[in-house]
Design a protein around this nucleic acid. Structure first.
Length: 569
RNA sequence: UGGGAUGUGGCCAAGCGGUUAAGGCACGGGACUUUGACUCCCGCAUCGUAGGUUCGAUCCCUACCAUCCCAGCCA
């Protein structure tokens, strides 16, 4: 598939932070090790039943990143073994997201469903070796006989059928002779195991569901525990990296690898999945937010979905950087979302084009500036990047400035505009506030000031210090726009652990819309995928869904750090 | 006396018997500043607890405590 417009491919030199998985791999790659002489081969195996989120980004970064570190390869594989939950629509979005994140599976895009025939053969092999049996227990009976966490289960009455009968029954299961749920194929392991997964787990169920790829070819489908190790083995995966909850599935993973005729012996290694403060990460909880209208959709910019982050304006690099910085370990943890913001700002600071925009405008009238005069002032595009060049700004005596940048009676340490005070208009002139006008309601409607002609460009001719510099937009050329400001979706750090439901902690101010924003003229044409810094306000990008030339809509990706807090009114 | 795993500062996370116990984020100071941004300085831990082994333990042993995962014909 073609790369997305803001494609930033991941490179091996990004992945230098070592972790415990690398220690294991190093050992296995050494002479005499399990993988001596082999190419490290990993895979990212999403189930196509939902959208990817930043938790997946961590897994993706580990799977693809580990391959990159070792000059190995990583497959993208749709783990589509349960047709009743999966849908083709998710496949495209998953591919798009992985690609956007900067990872490349080249020609190694696979479907678990492509292995259904080989998996079936493995199952027959188990039957033939007396390691699997067809069980007639109902789901309820099976649950009852499974035992509990502290008590062993009891063996199924069908456990000791002959190999011939099992083979016959299993073939008839495949042939569609039995109704859904009537029988299962189970591995014959140990009903007394302390590990529930080893208590004769089901490996095939009967389900007449139309599979998005195999259609109605099958009426039996393999279970994850059986299918996954086989998929890995078929693809010659050396390291099957997954999250912690599969730790106690590993004995079963190994059991299938040992007992099935597979060409390779992959090893499963588990790591802790990502949790982020002030948000939720599970597909189920995200779905609730989408379906109950708490957010506008799966790509709502407040969501930690990859599509939401993309729409919000995150860069792929910042997400990869974040994944590298949080590290990889086996400790359940919740990472402060501010680390994510830090990675974002760091990337954006270096690359975002600076522009000026006023989100909550009030008029500034420069009384000693000729009424019909207009001039063009140069402005640097990015002080962090000398190659970014300059652009022209139009200036006149009638400007828009930020409401927050004026106070009738200044609070302590306020060095913006107030009667009598001097301030610099960024890139333009030094002005002194001479007064203000209010509307019928007593609100400030217009600020009056005089400019110092000799300070063109912003420098004080006598070198005196000007404490405050504010941004502005020329009324003559201003572009109207809607600007959306975002804050945490939840007011508590761990909505997952707080009493009640996450929805009880939704932040009513997670979205603030400024419908009357004024932008400098250079922003008249939408440039999707381009990131801007609105001076003193933060980083912004066009909303990739709603912004158009007739109605410009910007999203605030993240605010600038701000050590000065205006009292909240 | 079910099984599996984990415990290093507010949040992540190095450390693998001898270190002043890395680094990042956050936080608090300060410098610089035509973005109160950026950048730069400074500050910020005795390693879950209790014993033990050792000349010496965050690293080894024992016990205890806490937390997480597992009883889908989901993945």
């Amino acid at each position: 598939m073609p790369p997305p417009p803001d494609f930033q491919p991941a490179t091996a030199d990004e992945f230098t932070v070592r972790n415990f998985i690398d220690d294991i791999i190093d050992e296995e790659l050494a002479p005499g090790g399990r993988c001596y002489g082999k190419t490290v081969h990993t895979r990212f195996p999403p189930e196509p039943n939902g959208y990817l989120h930043i938790g997946h980004a961590k897994a993706i970064a580990i799977d693809f990143g580990t391959a990159l570190k070792y000059d190995g390869i990583c497959n993208l594989r749709m783990d589509d073994t349960n047709p009743v939950r999966e849908d083709i629509e998710y496949i495209t979005s998953i591919c798009e997201d992985v690609r956007w994140l900067g990872f490349d599976w080249e020609d190694r895009f696979y479907y678990a469903s492509d292995y259904f025939e080989r998996m079936y053969e493995c199952a027959e092999h188990l039957v033939l070796n007396g390691l699997a049996f067809v069980c007639d227990q109902s789901a309820e009976e099976m649950r009852e006989s499974r035992g509990t966490l502290t008590e062993p289960g009891t063996e199924s009455p069908w456990r000791n059928r002959s190999i011939e009968e099992n083979l016959d029954l299993f073939r008839r299961m495949r042939a569609g002779e039995f109704p859904d749920g009537a029988r299962t194929l189970r591995a014959k392991i140990d009903m007394a195991s302390g590990n529930m997964n080893m208590r004769d787990p089901v490996i095939y169920r009967i389900a007449r569901a139309t599979h998005h790829r195999t259609g109605n070819d099958w009426c039996i489908y393999p279970m994850y525990d059986f299918a996954h190790p086989l998929e890995d083995a078929f693809e010659a995966i050396t390291h099957s990296l997954c999250s912690l909850e599969f730790e106690d599935h590993r004995p079963l993973y190994d059991w299938f690898i040992e007992n099935c005729p597979v060409p390779h012996q992959p090893r499963q290694i588990e790591f802790a999945r990502l949790n982020l403060t002030n948000t939720v990460m599970s597909k189920r909880k995200l779905r609730i937010l989408v379906e109950n209208g708490s957010v506008s959709g799966w790509d709502d910019p407040r969501l930690p979905t990859i599509s939401g982050l993309r729409r919000r304006g995150f860069t792929p690099y910042s997400i990869r950087d974040f994944c590298n910085r949080i590290g990889v370990s086996k400790v359940n943890s919740t990472v402060d979302y501010r680390l994510l913001e830090h990675c974002l700002r760091e990337d954006l600071n270096a690359h975002a084009q600076r522009v000026m925009a006023v989100l909550d405008p009030i008029e500034l009238l420069i009384t000693n500036y000729p009424a019909d005069k207009t001039e063009i002032l140069p402005a640097e595009n990015n002080p962090e990047d000398a190659d970014a060049g300059e652009r022209d700004l139009s200036f006149s005596g009638r400007l828009w400035i930020e409401r927050d940048d004026f106070m009738i009676k200044p609070i302590p340490k306020y060095f913006r505009l107030y009667p009598g005070n001097e301030v610099r208009l960024k890139h333009a002139y030094i002005i002194r506030c001479t007064g203000y006008e209010t509307d019928d309601f007593g609100n400030v409607a217009r600020v009056l000031a005089e400019y110092e002609p000799a300070s063109r460009g912003g420098a004080a001719p006598d070198g005196r210090r000007i404490r405050g510099t504010i941004h502005w937009v020329d009324q003559n050329t201003a572009v109207d726009a809607e600007v959306r400001l975002y804050d945490n979706l939840f007011t508590v750090e761990s909505p997952d652990n707080a009493p009640g439901a996450p929805e009880d902690y939704l932040n009513p101010d997670s979205l603030t819309v400024r419908t009357n924003a004024k932008l400098e003229a250079s922003l008249a044409e939408p440039d999707y995928g381009k990131r801007y810094q609105f001076l003193r306000l933060g980083y912004f990008c066009h909303d990739n869904r709603d912004s158009c030339p007739d109605h410009i809509v910007f999203n605030r990706t993240v605010s600038l750090r701000d050590s000065f807090k205006l009292p909240t009114t």
